[in-house]
Nucleic acid binder design. Sequence first.
DNA 1: GTGAAAGCGCTAACAG
DNA 2: CTGTTAGCGCTTTCAC
Lengths: 337, 337
Amino acid sequence: MSSLTLEDIARLAGVSRSTVSRVVNEHPHVRDDVRQRVWEVIQRTGYHPNAAARTLASQRSWMLGLVLPRSVSSFFTDPFFPHLVQGIAHACNQYDYTLSLFLFATKDDEDKIFPRISRRGLMDGIILQAGQLGDKLIDRLLSSNIPFVVAGRPFHCDGVSYVDVDNVRASYRATEHLIQHGYKRIATIAGPDNSTVSVDRREGYLKALTDHGWLVDESLIVEGDFTEASGYRAMQALLPARPDAVFAASDVMAIGAMRAVHQAGLTVPGDIAFVGFDDLPPAAHGTPHLTTIRQPVHKFGAKAVETLIDLIEQGTQPARRIIMDTELIVRESCGTH
Amino acid sequence: MSSLTLEDIARLAGVSRSTVSRVVNEHPHVRDDVRQRVWEVIQRTGYHPNAAARTLASQRSWMLGLVLPRSVSSFFTDPFFPHLVQGIAHACNQYDYTLSLFLFATKDDEDKIFPRISRRGLMDGIILQAGQLGDKLIDRLLSSNIPFVVAGRPFHCDGVSYVDVDNVRASYRATEHLIQHGYKRIATIAGPDNSTVSVDRREGYLKALTDHGWLVDESLIVEGDFTEASGYRAMQALLPARPDAVFAASDVMAIGAMRAVHQAGLTVPGDIAFVGFDDLPPAAHGTPHLTTIRQPVHKFGAKAVETLIDLIEQGTQPARRIIMDTELIVRESCGTH
DNA sequence: GTGAAAGCGCTAACAG
DNA sequence: CTGTTAGCGCTTTCAC
């Protein structure tokens, strides 16, 4: 297929290169009949502007990078990631940005990838998923001066823009719901404490207990890694402590835990009540339907994109902090429906 | 941070722009001491070449696009996609390509996205996931002359390069396994027939039955859409037909179906045996562990990337056809362990 | 082995 | 409203 240039179109339409450029970029000051004529030639010839040339001349690539520093396990197991990616991709389509994906799991990958994401002229900005590996990247990103936003709160966030949900408050709410409905031995399946998500959700749980004058029973706190299998194992570890309710830091872990409960011949919520976190499809499909905290994952992704575009267009100072709301969705698993 | 150019490095190192370019691109004919000197300056200054300028001058962007035309439901539910993406991303890292992601669900999205993926100078090549929407894109891609490879066989594949697994053979094998172990009423939960995957897997099932002299009982064939929920519903529809074994076209549907079996008070494999397809993590976690066809999803993604790079470097003619092997993994759910 | 010079295809002042 | 003119930062012949 032809490799037409602006010049060719200009010649065919009998105008100058600049005019064609103006038409293509929808600049206002072009006479209607000229615009028509140029458009027609463009349509007829199937001309597409060359992205690299445009980027070079305008210093704007209209590309955003999504960096996912992920241990393999949860990226595959947890529907959270596909949803987040979808939210981000959708927003990129909407704002006419192209999305690039940088997945990596190891330090080696990071060293290899960083030069690519920071090559000038490639990415207008970066969305970085928070996480242990990610935090090391933040410093590099800060000093590379490329606009970026973190999806989820990083541990060190001086001068860093991020989007997050109020995990403490949400977990507090979930735990309080169980307290208010008379449960007496409320356990939690927490996430690994190398992420702020886990730390915050654990904190919300603890705060709810102590605010209601309870003593914290360490045997009721077990750690998983956000996989279904880890929820299952965590519950097995929890059973001897005889909890009557469990707040799990993710739906997927709650589902694994409920599997362990059923296998032990107990019922949900009859013997043990459950509240999860996320409210993605699996939550509604489980048996019984899961009471959970709804995170606006899709909007969360979109908000990250919008914040990043704001950073690109308005400058990165001051850092933006966006906290999104969550909602307690009461279904059957907590026995209060 | 500084925005150094080749020119700056050249001046600092006391050489010409061309020499710096040669060093950066690892060309052979540069004197060792000069190379050293230049490298040192590059290191010291933290210089990164500008990607757009390089792309413009060399007509090579080192970017690959992954187009996922997906109905929302299965992209989220099925671990197949994250795995595929991971396989592709990993291979891109390895071959030093940057990966761009184009997700879309509707015709509108397609119209909006196509100009972006086909903008000259942006993508060196495209990986397209097969699927109903995708097939419309193939014609556009063919006439746009950009190298592309389809992940999964498309319905019309004249002149199209693709990577696929032998779904017919694999399903034949799965069904035959059930036949050989004495099951008499073998049902299938098929996929929607708008994809070759579904069609092929159904064909393998049918072929195994007829090759063994069986008559096909239409009441034993039910269609799902690769979601867990659809597997559940399909099984409910299947129960009155009293199957003693089920071949499901995906693990996720098998898991949904087994849930329906359990809920009906029946056991797996005691009352109904199961074989799935995929062998991704959920398969091994279910109760009981799922017998299934293992697809090399990760390698599949890598192979797609390698094929695409071959297309880019060696030309797109003739079209390449790669068929990958599968393997029957026998676990408990088929009762023959 | 190294440098000079000519683009790659587009944007964006600046004139007119 | 439209055309002219410089670049954007790099690669790549082609001389030397």
